[in-house]
Each structure stands twice: as structure tokens, then as C-alpha cells.
Design a protein around this nucleic acid. Structure first.
Length: 285
DNA sequence: CTATGAACCTGACAGC
DNA sequence: TGCTGTCAGGTTCATA
């Protein structure tokens, strides 16, 4: 469940169902799911058993469970990862990769990931509780401590285009392909607009729109096109019906009725309105 | 520093 | 039915 709203839905579920519970057993059913763990699967399990987990936290698309002694269990869902809270007697999912059993014998935590682009790891955390490998990940637009000043400065300094910048997790985290296209549509910006040409008000509009669209998506449980993107209880969100650009190739723009276009871009797709989101004419150098 | 492409995987779907 | 090609909410690494 990739982007910020979907990950936040999962974080809330974990906070509700896992906080304060003690790990009795950690089973790694696929080594790729813990490939970032320096000591491998055995180390991952050994680090977790006996630990009582704190309330889940999140930065961008990453989430983690404080585990005491300056450690945290970090997770990233990649393209297809799910964290599910399941009754122990529920049959194993086809792509079950990691299972945590708890000392209370009640519902277990399962990491299910079809494509195994996601991962879990136990890591040291800094004094603020942030896992070590997230030091370079920027705060996200829903974080009260998000540094707008820094965002504007770095955005203007970048020699790149605006959608690349939105997807750059060191500049602003949590935004992925769907919400980048949605924020750009709302801002009437072309995805290949050079960041150096963005005025401060335009950049502020863009950031505000990213914040608004992700907040709206979060309010309805995130975006789910299929059963891959679900909360810890396996339920889908409803934001797919509110998308203005993403996935709407050939359908009329809600502002001007021009058909939305899909363009191949960086091994993926960009959806945009060719009329509302124009590239300003290049000036000769 | 920036930019591109490929790699990592599995499954769904369209078209033949 | 079954094959082939394309596509998918992400990150990282290697090469220009």
C-alpha cells in the first residue's frame, strides 16, 4: 500500500491493535522480506522476541514500531506489501512473508507481500526514535514539523523537473505516482516543468494541493484499485472514485472536458490534462 | 550533481 | 485454452 495516506491507514491500525503487546515468536517465511537486516532472518527474529512494541509511527511511506532499548521494527510496504492483524487460526495467505505471534495468544501480525519489494528490519533508532536508515528521508507534508522554507529553497535549487522533485523522498516524503499526478492536476502544472521556474507562490500552491489531496484520501481510507491496498483488517479505501487525473486516460478533464492523457515517464505513467497543464514556452538561452 | 534505465518480483489483463 | 506482451500506489544501483 504505497503512498502516504495508505501507509497512514495501516499505521493507525497497528497503533490500535499491536501497541503494548509482547512478541512471543517471529517467523520469517521468505528471506527477501528481511533482506535489509544485517544479521539475516535469524537475527531479525532474535531481536524481536520478548520485546514489547510501542505505538506505530510513520514518516512518509515508512512506518515503525518502537521496540524498547533504542530499537525499532521498521517496515516499508513497497508496491504490494500488507500488514494484517489476523486471528491465529486464519489460514496463511499465499504471500505471507513474516508472522509475529504475541504472548497473549491473540491476533497475530502478518506481513504479506506479493512482489517482495517491501521489507521489515529491526534497527537502532536515534534519540527521537527515528530508525537509523530513515535519516535521509524528509518529513512529509502532513507532519507538523515539515520545513516549508527548506522545501522551497531546495526545490528551486534543484536542476530537475517538478514531478521528479515530488517523488524525491529526500525533498518531501510520502508522495508517490498517484498523488503526484493529482497534486499537479490541481495546481495546473505540467509534470515536466523545471523546478527552477517555479515561483514561491506556485510551489506553495503545489505543496498545499499535495497536502489537501492526501488528507482527503486519508479521510476515506486511502486509494484502492484492488484488494492489494487494504488496512490491517483487509478493508479497501474509497478514494479511487475521487481521483481527477490518475488512471483516467481518455476520460474528460473535470475542469475543461479535454481527454486526460497518459504519457510514459520514467518506466511508469503520468496522467495529465493537456489543456490545463501546459508547459510554459521555453525561452531561448 | 542530475538523468536514465534496469533490476528486484508476482499477478492481472488484453489480444491473438 | 494458452501463449505473449504490457502494466502496476516503490526504491536502489549502475552507468552516462
Amino acid at each position: 500500500m504505497p503512498e502516504l495516506p495508505e501507509v497512514e491507514v495501516v499505521r493507525r491500525g497497528l497503533a490500535r491493535w499491536v501497541t503494548g503487546r509482547t512478541v512471543a515468536e517471529a517467523q520469517v517465511l521468505h528471506p527477501r522480506a528481511v533482506r535489509r537486516q544485517v544479521g539475516g532472518a535469524a537475527d531479525f527474529a532474535a531481536q524481536l522476541v520478548g520485546r514489547t512494541l510501542g505505538a506505530a509511527e510513520r514518516r512518509g511511506k515508512y512506518l515503525w514500531l518502537p521496540a524498547g532499548d533504542g530499537l525499532a521494527m521498521l517496515g516499508h510496504l513497497g508496491m504490494s506489501g500488507q500488514l494484517l492483524v489476523q486471528e491465529p487460526e486464519q489460514p496463511d495467505e499465499t504471500h505471507l512473508r513474516v508472522r509475529l505471534r504475541f504472548t497473549d495468544g491473540r491476533r497475530e501480525l502478518r506481513f504479506v507481500d506479493q512482489r517482495t519489494f517491501g521489507h521489515l528490519a529491526v534497527e537502532e533508532a536515534d534519540p527521537d526514535g527515528l530508525p537509523a536508515s530513515l535519516a535521509h528521508i524528509a518529513r512529509d507534508p502532513l507532519d507538523p514539523l515539515f520545513d516549508e522554507q527548506r522545501f522551497f529553497t531546495e526545490l528551486r535549487a534543484k536542476r530537475t523537473t517538478v514531478k521528479r522533485a515530488l517523488l524525491d523522498q529526500t525533498l518531501v516524503s510520502g508522495v508517490g505516482n498517484i498523488y503526484a499526478d493529482e497534486a499537479l492536476w490541481r495546481s495546473k502544472l505540467h509534470y515536466e516543468r523545471p523546478t527552477a521556474t517555479l515561483t514561491r507562490p506556485l510551489a506553495a500552491t503545489l505543496l498545499g494541493n499535495a497536502r489537501e489531496v492526501m488528507t482527503a484520501a486519508l479521510a476515506v481510507g486511502g486509494t484502492s484499485f484492488d484488494s492489494l491496498y487494504v488496512n490491517v483488517n483487509g478493508e479497501s479505501g474509497y478514494f479511487s472514485r475521487s481521483l481527477d487525473a490518475y488512471g483516467r486516460e481518455g476520460e474528460p478533464c473535470y475542469r475543461c472536458a479535454t481527454p486526460i492523457r497518459r504519457a510514459a515517464w520514467m518506466n511508469r505513467s503520468s496522467y495529465f490534462c493537456p489543456r490545463c497543464q501546459r508547459l510554459p514556452r521555453q525561452r531561448a538561452a
